[in-house]
């Protein structure tokens, strides 16, 4: 094994990128800071999905449920309880984690497509309740005016999301590299063999699902921080498929792929939105081309080019 040159040292680049991001508020307008904050939040959501999808090989079809539940838990705690804001930031991941645990316990026995389908039906049930429960969740109007004291200017929101999302990504990266993460990926690659060597497959998958739900719930809280409101669309099934698209676009065998996918899609939406109202059509066409010609995503493609044919064999989970 050759000695790694300092230039091929990933943490160095990440530290440089982080410093650059810290300096950005000095030169960017408020609109771009808002867009970047939104990208961090959506990227966190997509990364948490990729934890179970790319690294766990589970068909997590309705991940937005945990995002939406987290957003509502945060918004309700903030507006109704009167407790300091940090309670709400704590409540969002906890509530999302509990919902993830319940849904996981119900779905976990099923494999692949059935798992995904049952998750969509359970998620739709949660959506239907939130959509209709006017007295508690505000129904289809949602909850508005959720502002946190101290995190109110665009610059503050930007720094807050940058730091919290950075910490979350670091923790998730450690989880992926931990013994648990290794076993989790072994289950993805070969569940039967993992079970044969004594791994409790379902317990690992359940824990993975809850971890992903917790981070998605926190992303929901951050979304409310950025946007100031929570609404039922946050847990509608189309959003789940959109974040699946982000993972696919960036590359779902790479850790930072989903973040890249979120950045591309949100930037594209902003740019395309200037010229045409038919943004979803553009998104659809981009997606179709991607699946036809680049199914392993951008980072996956670059990785494949660099590593050669061995990595190329593993194109799908």
């Amino acid at each position: 094994m050759t000695k790694k040159s300092i230039l091929r040292h990933p943490p160095l680049y990440i530290a440089l990128a982080f410093i650059l991001l810290l300096c950005l508020p000095l030169m960017l307008s408020r609109f771009y800071l808002y867009l970047l904050a939104l990208i961090f939040v959506t990227g966190l959501l997509a990364t948490s999905l990729n934890l179970v999808l790319g690294f766990g090989g589970m068909y997590q079809f309705h991940h937005a449920v945990f995002y939406g539940v987290g957003a509502y838990a945060f918004a309700l705690m903030l507006t109704e309880s009167g407790l300091p804001a940090w309670n709400a930031y704590l409540a969002a991941p906890i509530v999302a984690g509990i919902v993830g645990l319940i849904m996981g316990l119900i779905c976990i026995r099923l494999s692949k497509l059935y798992f995904g389908m049952l998750q969509i039906s359970l998620g739709s049930l949660v959506w239907a309740i939130i959509f209709r429960w006017y007295s508690f969740t505000g129904g289809d109007d949602g909850i508005h005016g959720c502002y946190v004291n101290g995190i109110d200017s665009t610059t503050n929101i930007y720094y807050f999301t940058l730091v919290t999302v950075g910490v979350c990504l670091f923790i998730m990266h450690r989880i992926v590299r931990s013994p648990f993460g290794r076993v989790f990926q072994a289950i993805r690659d070969n569940p039967e063999r993992s079970a044969a060597v004594g791994v409790n497959v379902m317990a690992h998958q359940l824990v993975g699902l809850v971890i992903a739900a917790v981070f998605a719930g926190f992303a929901g809280a951050l979304f409310v921080t950025v946007e100031g409101s929570a609404f039922p669309d946050l847990l509608f099934w189309t959003l789940s498929l959109e974040i699946l698209i982000m993972c696919l676009l960036g590359g779902w065998f790479t850790f930072l792929g989903p973040m890249l996918g979120a950045a591309i899609i949100l930037s594209l939406r902003t740019v395309v939105g200037i010229y045409t109202e038919y943004w979803t059509m553009v998104l659809g066409i981009v997606m179709m081309l991607l699946i036809l010609f680049l199914p392993e995503g951008i980072l996956g493609y670059i990785g494949k080019r660099r590593e050669g044919p061995v990595a190329a064999e593993r194109t799908e989970p």
Partner: peptide, 8 residues
């Protein structure tokens, strides 16, 4: 995901 893109 492909059929979803077509739906969009």
């Amino acid at each position: 995901l492909f059929t979803f893109s077509v739906a969009l």
